[in-house]
């Protein structure tokens, strides 16, 4: 095992235009907050991809376990009443 360190891993989220959601762009290595932000800027916005950046240490991300997918996501599949197309509107109704 190498004793060399390549700094901590951070996840980078970029907002491509104001008003749009922040999207996961990738990861960078950095030793501190400022370096993480600068590295994210230097690596993920070289072609004008961004107007704003979030970075966070990867170790703080909590991910769902694929084994729980049935329990977590399947129950939402039969709740069609949450979607507008579920409802029948009278013929001729407008602006609804």
């Amino acid at each position: 095992m190498s004793t060399d360190t390549q700094f901590d891993l951070w996840e980078v989220f970029i907002q491509s235009k104001s008003g749009l959601p922040y999207m996961h762009a990738g990861s960078v290595h950095a030793s501190d907050n400022k370096m993480a932000l600068q590295n994210a800027r230097d690596i993920y916005t070289r072609r004008g991809e961004g107007t704003s950046i979030w970075v966070m240490p990867s170790k703080y991300i909590v991910a769902s376990n694929p084994d729980d997918n049935d329990m977590l996501f399947d129950p939402a599949n039969d709740k069609a009443y949450r979607h507008p197309t579920f409802y029948t509107m009278p013929e001729g109704a407008k602006n609804i």
Partner: peptide, 11 residues
């Protein structure tokens, strides 16, 4: 000194 810094200096 690290790949990220290589890109920063190039910028």
């Amino acid at each position: 000194p690290i790949l990220e810094e290589d890109l920063a200096l190039t910028n």
